[in-house]
Design a protein around this nucleic acid. Structure first.
Lengths: 126, 126
DNA sequence: CACCTTATTGATAATCATTATCAATTAAAT
DNA sequence: ATTTAATTGATAATGATTATCAATAAGGTG
């Protein structure tokens, strides 16, 4: 049975208030004033993913986490930033119905490309 | 400019003939009789991903690679195996058109759940 | 409230994956 | 055949994640 520790509460709070899909490293920085050991951050985040409280996003530059779940992602191949992509769920259901998959727990959908900001920067410098 | 080395040719060949989405470790085993250093496997695979010859699949259990591209994936949360999911591309195009994304280079779509085999095993043992 | 049991924490060591280094090799151009 | 520079392989270095374990604290019980 899980215990309501100050560290766990703190980490959940920080994740809930953050919309930037932080990595573990960023998460450690976000709680750095709270004196939480990094082993605890790892353990807590893993347990939260297991309990479906947060979502794990596997990206080319490493693992990111997201407290919010009802959406998808765009990943910039240049700057590695993640932005949210909101899609009509009926379209995803539609997709699933054409496959012969059942009992899908998560749909991990990441669009990869170059974000507008990086495109602009590239135009300026070339 | 890229050189046609025996190691690179060998690694491409192995990837082309493998349908199991190997990890780097598995790839090293697959070429173990060819005396190719693991640093070379890493370098070659990275270069192939960069050149769009193979696709990188980021999963909870690590990185997998796939020579084939025109499909999507199912990832089993129990046994970590990946299986191919073939979907009509018009459905994906449809999805994209409802977002305001342009110039998407890859669509990384992974359905997560428990595979049939693991479901059966679980039923047997509980 | 005091006590007990046990999960959790934090510091650290250990492990695993990936990248960097660099001398020796080899592809490919001349 | 010679030259040049990219590639290789062995190994060291780095970075990310997990394991270990004594100390702490959550939450149940009388």
């Amino acid at each position: 049975m899980e215990r309501k520790t100050v560290q766990r509460q703190e980490i959940i709070e920080v994740l809930k208030n953050n919309y930037n899909h932080p990595t573990i490293k960023e998460l450690c920085e976000l709680v750095s004033d709270k004196n939480i050991g990094q082993a605890t951050v790892y353990r807590t985040v893993n347990s939260l993913v297991n309990d479906d409280v947060i979502r794990r996003i596997d990206c080319p530059d490493g693992v990111h986490y997201d407290y919010r779940k009802e959406h998808y992602h765009f990943y910039c191949l240049k700057c590695n930033k993640i932005t949210d992509v909101f899609l009509d769920n009926s379209l995803i259901d539609n997709l699933l119905s054409t496959s012969n998959l059942t009992d899908i727990k998560h749909v991990n959908l990441v669009f990869e490309g170059i974000c507008d900001n990086c495109k602009k920067l590239n135009k300026d410098t070339c």
